[in-house]
């Protein structure tokens, strides 16, 4: 069972394993590598991510991203068995003081660039042109585009009280809607690449952000309010992943867990 640590709570070994896996993944340009997985969310087409409902019983935001992290994390573990995607606690004192956690912010580790700070945006020259024209500032200039960030002030990150109120949502639909709104706000908070659906997943912080969202869902599932998604969506397949909504519900069946915490 892989335990997903918080970003700030990672041991030196956990961080080293994560960086090792991430570096190897970024170097792979086939469908095992980081560029491929980041591209599943947005560009290159099709843009497969699921957010707010498109039709009835279509609240796929949480299960789709749970499946997405599951397959990406497995691909990291193929590079380094000890790797686990950490979750970014945006509510922590540390985040409200420094903003982006240090592990994802440091430019270099010794003489090597930090793979968690940025990544190449592996999309076609046509798509690069369109991203730059339609959403300036979401990727770097230059021949090879990279991700960029332009964060807001740290204290604008979500607060614990906000997450507590989200955790008191009485229905699945309500919970999904509220947690998605907090999620969207963090995308805007990070700025740059993270503000745009088609490229957001290329920023390594995307994954720590989504692990945090996944954890909030897990906490809600374990709480007295937690209920399953509506029956009508349980057997929906989370395209392009060979997994249904039902198969995402128990994270232990997916081989991971979050560090134990008392739920009030």
């Amino acid at each position: 069972m892989a335990i997903r640590p918080s970003v700030e709570g990672m041991t030196a070994e956990q961080l080293a394993a994560l960086r090792d896996a991430w570096t190897k993944s970024q170097a792979l340009v086939d469908d095992r590598g980081f560029g491929y997985w980041a591209g599943v969310h947005g560009l290159p087409l099709p843009i497969s991510c699921r957010h707010s409902p498109r039709t009835q019983n279509d609240f796929l935001f949480l299960p789709w991203h749970r499946a997405y992290l599951y397959f990406f994390e497995r691909s990291l573990q193929d590079r380094n068995k000890a790797a686990a995607v950490p979750w970014w606690d945006w509510t922590s004192d540390g985040s409200h003081t420094r903003g982006i956690p240090e592990a994802f912010d440091t430019k270099k580790i010794g003489k090597v660039r930090n793979p968690l700070r940025e990544a190449r945006v592996a999309i076609s020259p046509d798509d690069v042109k369109r991203v730059r024209a339609q959403a300036p500032g979401t990727i770097t200039p230059g021949k090879v585009p990279y991700t960029r960030r332009d964060p807001d002030i740290p204290d604008e990150l979500p607060r614990k009280a906000t997450i507590d109120s989200v955790l008191a949502a009485p229905t699945y639909e309500d919970f999904s809607t509220r947690v998605e709104n907090v999620h969207n706000a963090v995308h805007g908070w990070v700025g740059g690449t993270m503000t745009l659906v088609p490229v957001a997943a290329y920023d390594p912080i995307f994954w720590a952000h989504h692990a945090a969202i996944d954890r909030v869902w897990y906490l809600w599932q374990m709480s007295p309010f937690g209920v399953d998604p509506p029956a009508a969506m349980m057997d929906t397949v989370l395209d392009p992943f060979p997994m249904t909504v039902r198969q995402t519900l128990n994270i232990n069946n997916l081989g991971y867990d979050y560090a134990v915490e008392v739920i009030h």
Partner: peptide
């Protein structure tokens, strides 16, 4: 309060 929209960034097709 506020709501936040995560934008698609225009058309890529």
């Amino acid at each position: 309060g506020r709501f936040v929209v995560f934008g698609h960034g225009g058309c890529f097709g």
